[in-house]
């Protein structure tokens, strides 16, 4: 259990790091701003690679969230305190997962989503990502201060 308590946050950190990196890689910025020129980071300019990476880490992220949610429901719900921070985290994670799944469905041939809905999906997925970064930044600053 102790081992699990220390490993799970590490899994989350690694997954969220690569998800964010590959997510930003969907925009044509890494080549423009020389980041893909750094030795070993050339793959960041390849949209197909960052796309596949984003999918793989999204799969891992969903597994982790499902595991943590069920773990909470089964083992910890009676003793746990549901704080505002946890609620915000749940909303952001759910937002990212739902918009992400819809965007994956969109990428299949013949999906019936309208162009406007696709724009809304792209913007809301990006917005949830920014919220997550703010949330993590706030959390880290608070942790650092205490």
């Amino acid at each position: 259990m102790e081992k699990e308590n220390s490993i799970m946050p590490l899994f989350y950190k690694i997954t969220l790091f690569f998800l964010t990196l590959s997510g930003f890689g969907q925009m044509p910025i890494f080549k423009r701003y020389y980041i893909a020129d750094i030795p070993g980071l050339g793959w960041l300019a390849n949209f197909h690679i960052t796309h596949l990476m984003h999918y793989i880490f999204a799969g891992i992220f969903i597994s982790l969230v499902v595991y943590s949610s069920l773990d909470f429901i089964i083992f910890r719900i009676d003793s746990a305190r549901i704080t505002k921070i946890i609620i915000i985290k749940i909303i952001i994670y759910l937002g990212l997962i739902i918009t992400g799944i819809l965007m994956i469905i969109k990428n299949f041939s013949g999906t019936p989503f309208s162009p406007n809905f696709i724009i809304l999906l792209a913007l809301s997925h990006f917005l949830f990502c920014i919220l997550l970064l703010f949330f993590l930044g706030y959390h880290l600053t608070k942790k650092f201060k205490t």
């Binding site: 595991y67 069920l70 041939s109």
Partner: peptide, 23 residues
């Protein structure tokens, strides 16, 4: 060019199942 990504997406269906199996 979309095939590999979409095949990985199909394989992602096991993601929640992996979480359920672990719990």
């Amino acid at each position: 060019s979309m095939a590999l990504g979409n095949n990985i997406a199909k394989a992602m269906l096991i993601a929640p199942i992996a979480g359920i199996a672990a719990i």
